[in-house]
Design a protein around this nucleic acid. Sequence first.
DNA 1: ATGTAC
Length: 372
Amino acid sequence: MGISFSGRTGRAPVRHFYTRDSWIDGRAEDQLAQVAGWSGMQSVAGFPDLHPGKFGPVGAAFLADRIYPQLVGTDIGCGMGLWRLDLPRRKLKLDKAAKRLEVLERGTDPAQAADALAAAGLTGQIGEAGLGTIGGGNHFCELQTVEETDGTAGLHKGDLCLLVHSGSRGYGAQIFDGLEDSWKAGFDPQSAAGNAYLALHARAVAWARLNRRLIAETAADALGTTVTPLCDSVHNSVVAHQGHWLHRKGAAEADRGLVPLAGSREAPSFLLALPDTVPEALSSVSHGAGRRYDRASMHGRVRKVRSELEALTRTRFGGRVICHDRDLLIEEAGPAYKAPEAVLADLTAFGLATPLARMVPLITYKTSGGQR
DNA sequence: ATGTAC
């Protein structure tokens, strides 16, 4: 028994929006319960892509009367954007396109980056380095083709799309790392520290959004075409929500209409429509399939012989994976992820989402760089 | 997650 002076005492309610059909790591559920006991926590929602994270689980939303930067993490503003490519499938030569996407390695050139940042209202102390680059980990730029759709989102069967998963690169990390350790672990939103963090957080979100757009535009330009934006959804952030602070960690915004649900290089992705009619889901929804196996354990699941590594660069859709970093190729292999179909089935069963389109990967671009 | 800490 204890006394808390910050609103709710005791454990916040935890709602999970998944069934036993979506494989959930018990350690992630332990993390969910643990965070529900943090000071000022009001309500917690876990989604079917739930998996363990560093300070708390990924694939969850947390409503609190305090701000917890560590729940957002270092990659403030990370998200997924989907663009339709103005290029017919028949004009696409896979290997040639894969080669052309190597321009993504360079990022936006400094002069153009400065202009783009200024146009986005981002001036002053702000990182230009890294703008227009994908980054590491689970980030990618994926060329996909629409296999199935009802046409309502302006997509048609056979259309080409770009799904970009990236974030605020060094800029967001610099903001998080610059916080006092005690602030990382939570602070009062009314404090000067709270306001300073929220201002920097807003800049990182804008930076990350711009980054995804520049990646899509650069990729389209390299392929000799242009893009039309469909949606862009942030999944690492904190925003004001019903008089409290809503933290999303690997959870997409369900109050902005459409979001992409990323599959993997070996599984389809979906475009979702979101009714946002279930208050306990905290206006949030899954951002992807979610990890099944952690990075370290993936190394024990792949035999490091040339034939097996080579096989990881070809997908069951006849697609290509461009990843010249051997460790990353293994850690992000298809089997590392849950089945997005199971995640989608749970989301629809709980009334959180309706699929509008199903896309399969043709080129999953990670990096042309060497080993790490 | 990070022009990466140990």
